[in-house]
């Protein structure tokens, strides 16, 4: 009887120990239950996955939810970077600004702000902030200077001093930069007034000047023919027809002068279009010579 009781007692003790064990396991599991797909930790790892997949809008939503409960400089930086990459520059700039003081990424955030302004093409503010102490960073001052020089290739402000501009780039790229600099400084454009004056002197000459040889010759023939028809009709006393053709000749003459000026402008737009594309492709290829941060791609 005693032995039996002891057996049952041992079983009960064993059961109680097991009970404590299972409750511990279950409570750990219960912790896991809370740690579900929407917990801050899960949101962060899912957000990081989306970021690497370039699904930046979704990633930014996950980061925003994470930051509601936790504060993390890297996550806020990645949130700003997500906005930057999807072209929401203002939100990117504001989030970068929130990392300016007492954080581990103060320099990176300052560079981030300049990147936001650069890609927004807000070059006025870019240049203004570059001179303000609150926004500058020793660590990336060269990168920001370089970005500032690059910005001159994308707007119509006068180009800065060539030697300082060239020295901002590595020797390897300097030849290309020099080429772009002189292309920007002395573009191969045509003057619309010259084109118009040339066409006023000889119909079609302005068009030939802008490279439209076919249009120029056609203008010359058309205007010449209409003048001839007009003169011929006047000579044969067909005054109505004479005036009619004279009117047409005047239209062709005037239209050609106007068209020559327009043609020069289109030619110039073409020069600018090709230059802009070439410059954009070059800098995109080199990622605007900006440093890459490993922690962003983790």
């Amino acid at each position: 009887m005693i032995i039996k009781r002891t057996k049952s007692h041992i079983a009960e003790i064993f059961c109680n120990v097991l009970c404590v064990f299972v409750i511990t396991v279950v409570s750990v599991n219960a912790q896991k239950l809370n740690d579900d797909f929407f917990s801050p930790k899960s949101r962060l790892s899912f957000g990081n996955y989306l970021f690497l997949e370039k699904d930046y809008l979704r990633a930014s939503n996950e980061y925003k939810e994470f930051l509601k409960t936790d504060n993390n400089d890297t996550v806020r930086f990645k949130l700003s970077e997500s906005f930057l990459r999807i072209g929401r520059y203002e939100e990117a700039a504001n989030n970068f600004k929130s990392l300016f003081f007492s954080t581990s990424l103060t320099d990176e955030a300052r560079l981030g702000l300049f990147k936001s302004l650069f890609f927004e093409k807000n070059f006025v503010r870019f240049r203004q902030y570059r001179l303000e102490e609150n926004y500058t960073t020793e660590k990336f001052s060269h990168d920001i200077d370089r970005l500032n020089y690059i910005s001159y290739f994308f707007d119509s402000e006068p180009l800065p001093d060539s030697s300082r501009l060239f020295s901002a780039f590595a020797d390897l790229n300097r030849a290309d930069i020099k080429k772009f600099y002189y292309m920007k400084k002395n573009p191969d454009t045509k003057n619309p007034v010259t084109a118009a004056l040339l066409s006023a002197a000889i119909p079609g000459l302005g068009k030939i000047y802008t490279g439209e040889i076919g249009d120029g010759i056609t203008s010359l023939i058309t205007t010449g023919l209409l003048v001839f028809l007009s003169a011929n009709n006047f000579r044969h006393d067909h005054n109505f027809r004479g005036w009619l053709f004279a009117g047409f000749a005047a239209l062709a003459y005037g239209g050609n002068i106007y068209g020559s000026a327009a043609s020069a402008q289109i030619y110039n737009a073409g020069v600018k279009f090709n230059f802009d594309n070439e410059v954009k492709l070059f800098f995109e290829k080199h990622n605007y010579f900006l440093p890459e941060f490993d922690f962003v791609n983790r």
């Binding site: 076919g214 239209l251 239209g255 106007y258």
Partner: peptide, 16 residues
């Protein structure tokens, strides 16, 4: 009208 006159002349160009 000037724009049209120019366009019409360009239309006459065989090699446009």
């Amino acid at each position: 009208t000037l724009m049209f006159a120019d366009r019409f002349t360009r239309d006459l160009n065989f090699f446009k």
